[in-house]
Amino acid sequence: MAYVIAEPCIDLKDKACVEECPVDCIYEGRRALYIHPDECVDCGACEPVCPVEAVFYEDDVPPHWQPYRQANVEFFDVLGSPGGACAVGSVSADPPLVAAHAGRADDPNR
């Protein structure tokens, strides 16, 4: 695994990271985005463009967001290795940690 997207992305999905990614390895779940560990080339382009600072190199994920490393693994355990996010489009599922997240008070869709 290379980079991980943590809790601040839930229900926001700004997608600046998707636009910046040169290898199309950032996939969209129902409530969050996920970086495919085998497709990521560790370029780091996604990290500085995230407006909510949700992207971390795997070794730098803050302790309170460590469970999102496993959530990323679980997302791709189900999805597999499709070889590019554009071909897949939005997936209508998330791992249990993300699916169970309480949501944001400022989100009118929750």
Rank of each mutant, 00 (worst) to 15 (best):
N72W: 05
S92V: 07
V18T: 12
G103F: 03
A32F: 01
A2T: 15
A93F: 13
G84K: 09
L97Y: 08
L33H: 13
D107E: 11
F76C: 08
I5Y: 01
A100Y: 03
D59H: 08
H36K: 04
V61L: 08
C46F: 07
P108A: 11
R30F: 10
Y57N: 05
V91K: 03
C17H: 08
C46I: 07
I5Q: 06
C46R: 06
G103A: 04
A99T: 05
E74I: 06
I5K: 05
V88M: 07
A93R: 15
A105D: 14
G29E: 02
G103S: 09
C9A: 07
D11K: 14
Y3W: 14
H36L: 00
L97N: 09
V55F: 04
D77V: 11
Y68F: 15
V41I: 14
D11R: 15
E7F: 02
Y57T: 03
E47Y: 01
D42W: 01
G80N: 07
C25Y: 04
P8A: 11
Q70E: 15
E74H: 08
P22V: 05
E39K: 09
R69E: 00
V88H: 07
P108M: 10
G44P: 03
R30Q: 15
P96H: 01
D60K: 10
F76L: 08
E28M: 15
R31H: 13
R104F: 01
N109K: 12
A16Y: 13
P51F: 06
V88G: 04
P48H: 05
I10R: 11
V98D: 02
C25F: 02
I26L: 13
E53R: 13
V98T: 09
D24Q: 07
A100C: 06
